[in-house]
Amino acid sequence: MEQSGTTALLQGAVQDLASGVVSALRGGDHVTVSGAIGEDTPTANLVLPAVRVLGADLLLPRVLFRSQPDLAELAVFRKAVESFPARADAAPAVRWSHWAMRRTLRRFEAAPDGAPGQDTAPDVDTDWLEGAGWQYLTHQLAVLAALAVPGEACAVTEVARSRPVDVARGFVRAVRRRDWQQAAGAGRWLTLLDGVPAELGLETGLDFVELMGGGDPRVALQIQAARVMRAAGAVA
């Protein structure tokens, strides 16, 4: 019971963080996580794990709107990265997710001259996606939706770019299964890909996923991220 209770609390903490990101993506408040650290509340010790679960998307509004996180925000993010290193034998998606956080961290830990930190090469490859069926591919990409950021290419992005129709099929499958989290993640990827069949109706599809599953802030986060990226693409 304690285990499941903790899991539920962690999920709640992740959702709270996601809600903050959604709000920031909508142009509202910025994400606040620092205040919870050190507080003597039952959920205070869940902040870092929750940041790790949400991953690089915690700072997504800063990335997309090109603003600088405040120092406390960045400190919590760094602490989560350092507290939960990805083991060498962890699943590739876990290692990529951790790498995405490290990349984001470097981006904001600018050199004194203001130049962004250099990305280091990821210590994980995309072999596990080689020859993957479109169902598994889409599932894994949705798990790694935090990597779907404009102008931030990596090996996973290249795999996604080479298989737009497969990801579109995965979106259809996820919607049919009412797996809104996966549908939203796949939809975010599709926003970035060329060669997505027009008849997919992606824009309406994203609205549909939000309508049906947007009560979950993690779903709303992906949808809002996709919208911001689409708008940025339209401007660019």
């Binding site: 479109w134 129709v165 579109a168 099929r169 259809v172 499958r173 049919r176 299964r177």
Partner: peptide, 13 residues
């Protein structure tokens, strides 16, 4: 073409 693109998703489902 439309069917070739989407039939795999429907078969799966």
């Amino acid at each position: 073409d439309y069917l070739a693109t989407w039939l795999p998703a429907w078969l799966d489902d």
